[in-house]
Design a protein around this nucleic acid. Structure first.
Length: 425
RNA sequence: GCGGGUGUAGCUCAAGGGUAGAGCACUGGACUGUGGCUCCAGGGGUUGGGGGUUCGAAACCCCUCACUCGCCCCA
């Protein structure tokens, strides 16, 4: 009776049937849209060699330093539960020489990710992402295309309002100069920055711009901005993305402080945010990563991609979707011989594609009727000893309350014709 | 890893030292084999766990666990 209860691991959630409809709507909408935009699904492994993530995300990244679920395999090799999907997609791209199939490869994936963080609103240790990646083209049109895809997804789901934040992080050619300038600026004001930011000056100066403390924000208000340091190629790219968005009519806010947490991003960086999610208000984020494929051992290949947090988007669904499917027919039974007959009848109806339920424990007829009503059954078949003796069953229309006697032999056929009009609709 | 908040019935929550309650849900009855509405009744709790204070603790104190929100960081 009182065996120790086992709970789900911290930060890991069950997605119960009452929530599943929103998940389905989001997933199917995203899949359809992705395919309309020319992206094909790829299924990537849940775990990979630890090395893959260390190299792709950046060894000094928080994710790699302290958030990965890493364990030793039986042969001693280090394995990590994937904290994100891009690394795997690129690994697969390289491993299967996907560039030989087409100069441009457009992929999407759906599935769980794992990060050992402290859970809070909108943040879990196992969470789910839908990710999209385009490999093989440096065209800003792809950046635009993916932003349009996200924009259309949120429109279709009626998630409003969302804000698109856009920035350019430059490339290995122009970023160092900016980094130095920013460092110099911050160092002069170090004593007035918060403790965390003082540490960041050397470790990751861009992050200081992201600090939420008012004092830090005030101090960095006129800090040098990346856009002032971009080389001509990066400027052109950034302008092209903005022009593309303008052409399509997708609005955005240029946010020079927008910084991505993972090292591999270049040029375009973006983030969609929404209200009503608590502190974690980013619902999708991504950008360009032109050096990543090469860094992982592939041919020099530009790429763009984003990931969307399913849990976060799902919580924005205000519309209550129907939870469990209502049966077409409910079978109520009275008496022993009727009870013995149920399984056969259930099976015959199900073979005909009719959704049937029954009360397996055969409560009182009243409670069975109540259950039929609660489940939303359109018809209830009453199988009682009295009817069986006469070779009949009673079919009750739950809405009109009208009942008809039906011969047992013809019961399935009768129900099929009864339900036919609705199934066509 | 660091802070704040909360743990009472399946769910949402009352009771702020003196007999653990309500609503919803569930089961049964009124209606002996017929759903929704109404009314009545019933089942269900070591008040997260452990220790302490007290004649007496759900309540006060300590520890612990869980959940939750936030920081760091991220989807």
């Amino acid at each position: 009776m009182s065996a120790p209860k086992i709970q789900a691991i911290r930060g890991v959630k069950d997605i119960l049937p009452s929530d599943i409809a929103s998940w389905h709507i989001l997933e199917t909408t995203a899949r359809n849209l992705s395919e309309t935009f020319g992206y094909a699904e790829i299924k990537i492994p849940i775990f990979e060699a630890t090395e893959l993530f260390a190299r792709s995300l950046g060894a000094a990244t928080d994710v790699v330093e302290k958030e990965m679920y890493t364990f030793e395999d039986r042969d001693g090799k280090l394995i990590t539960l994937r904290p994100e999907g891009t690394a795997s997609v690129i690994r697969a791209y390289i491993e299967h020489h996907l560039w030989t199939e087409s100069p441009l490869v457009k992929l999407y994936y759906v599935g769980p990710m794992f990060r050992h963080e402290r859970p809070q609103a909108g943040r879990f240790r196992q969470f789910h992402q839908i990710g999209v990646e385009a490999l093989g083209s440096a065209s800003p049109w792809l950046d635009v295309e993916q932003l349009v895809l996200l924009n259309r997804l949120f429109l279709a789901l009626e998630i409003a309002p969302t804000t698109l934040l856009l920035n350019s992080l430059g490339c290995p050619l122009c970023r160092p100069a900016y980094r130095d300038a920013l460092k110099a600026f911050l160092s002069q004001r170090a004593e007035n920055l918060c403790e965390a930011c003082r540490r960041r000056i050397d470790a990751n100066p861009l992050r200081v711009l992201d600090c939420k403390r008012e004092e830090c924000r005030a101090l960095t208000r006129d800090a040098p901005v990346i856009t002032g340091f971009l080389g001509s190629e990066c400027v052109e790219h950034f302008n092209a993305v903005r022009a593309g968005l303008d052409d399509v009519g997708v609005s955005y806010v240029v946010e020079p402080r927008l910084v991505r947490g993972l090292d591999y991003y270049t040029k375009t960086a973006f983030e969609f945010t929404a209200e009503g999610l608590g502190a974690q208000n980013t619902i999708a984020a991504g950008g360009r990563y032109d050096g990543l494929v090469e860094a992982l051992g592939g041919p020099p290949t530009p790429g763009v991609g984003f990931a969307l947090g399913i849990e976060r988007v799902v919580t924005l669904f205000k519309k209550g979707a129907p939870t469990s499917p209502s049966p077409d027919v409910f079978i109520a039974t009275v008496g022993e011989s009727a009870k013995r007959r149920v399984m056969g009848t259930l099976t015959a109806l199900r073979d005909a594609g009719i959704k049937v339920e029954t009360d397996y424990d055969q409560g009182s007829l009243k409670s069975q009727m109540r259950r039929a009503d609660k489940l939303g059954a359109r018809h209830t078949v009453i199988l009682g000893d009295d009817e069986l003796a006469k070779g009949l069953a009673v079919v009750r229309d739950m809405a009109t309350k009208s009942q008809t006697d039906v011969a047992l032999d013809g019961l399935v056929a009768h129900l099929i014709t009864l339900l036919a009009p609705a199934r066509r609709a």
